[in-house]
């Protein structure tokens, strides 16, 4: 199976000499195509740092990261932007929709930026809106729709250009439980049907239980890893809770 993410011995330190803070050390991570991987850990464990490194927003101090077979470390700004645009899709905790654009425009933004064919662009917008159940609100503005609809719009935007990797940063963080469940089910379906590769950082064990594999990070290192295998979701959720209780510190009990 094709490898989408390949991180080897990644290290990230902040600060100047004499006052160094190590955010990540000796991280090795491999994500295969079609995986839905969760990353969990208490506040300050380094999970967001890891996501930033993978999304090329930040650079590691040392180590090697390849996404979709391309080393992302030695790219200039223009190529990095193009890479983000073409290969990555983002879902943020606070949606990050552009309030000047309608839902439809928000969704097709990556395609427009890539100067995709107009007919193809409109077809994709409809297809995805259908999948996420937001077809009726395509011409509304973000301030006119609910948080759940916003996040589904953001998710639509993330996958519209068929990226190699979807990065989700606490996507359910700002949603009520009903909206969160809807979104997670959509993501799961996307992962299963279209074999989209998703990497999700979350605090929430309930959200993590939708993943196929969950990585636990503590103090900048990988603590352990739990695979779902053929277990049912409620059982997997229990397994995650068990790890968290050992891990300790800052993980809320959600669900």
């Amino acid at each position: 199976m094709k490898t989408i993410v390949e991180a080897r011995n990644v290290q990230k330190t902040y600060g100047a000499r004499g006052n160094l803070f190590t955010a990540l050390q000796h991280i090795d991570l491999t994500v295969a195509e079609g995986e839905f991987v969760g990353i969990m850990g208490p506040s300050g464990s380094g999970k967001s740092t890891l996501l930033n490194l993978l999304s090329t927003i930040d650079r590691p101090t040392s180590g090697e990261i390849e996404v979709d077979g391309v080393s992302i470390l030695n790219m200039d700004e223009a190529r990095m932007s193009a890479f983000r645009r073409d290969r990555l899709g983002f879902i943020f905790q606070d949606f990050n929709l552009l309030d000047t654009l309608t839902v439809r425009e928000n969704i097709v933004l990556p395609l427009a930026l890539a100067r995709a064919d107009l007919a193809e662009l409109e077809r994709r917008a409809l297809e995805i809106a259908e999948r996420f159940g937001i077809r009726d609100i395509l011409d509304k503005y973000p301030y006119q729709i609910s948080g759940g609809q916003k996040q589904r719009t953001a998710a639509s935007r993330a996958i519209v250009a068929k990226p190699s990797l979807v990065l989700a940063d606490e996507p359910t963080g700002a949603l009520d439980s009903k909206s969160a469940t809807d979104l997670l089910e959509c993501l799961q379906e996307l992962n299963m049907r279209e074999r989209a590769t998703i990497l999700m950082v979350t605090h929430d064990p309930f959200a993590a239980s939708y993943c196929s594999r969950v990585l636990f990070i503590k103090d900048g290192s990988v603590f352990t890893e739990v695979g779902r295998g053929e277990t049912a979701r409620p059982l997997f959720f229990k397994k995650i809770m068990d790890v968290l209780s050992v891990l300790g510190g800052g993980a809320p009990v959600g669900g």
């Binding site: 932007s81 645009r85 990050n96 935007r157």
Partner: peptide, 16 residues
Amino acid sequence: IGRYAVLRKLGVSRRE
């Protein structure tokens, strides 16, 4: 500022 930060994250280059 926020709006443009999103665009940068979505892969709009600085030149664009």
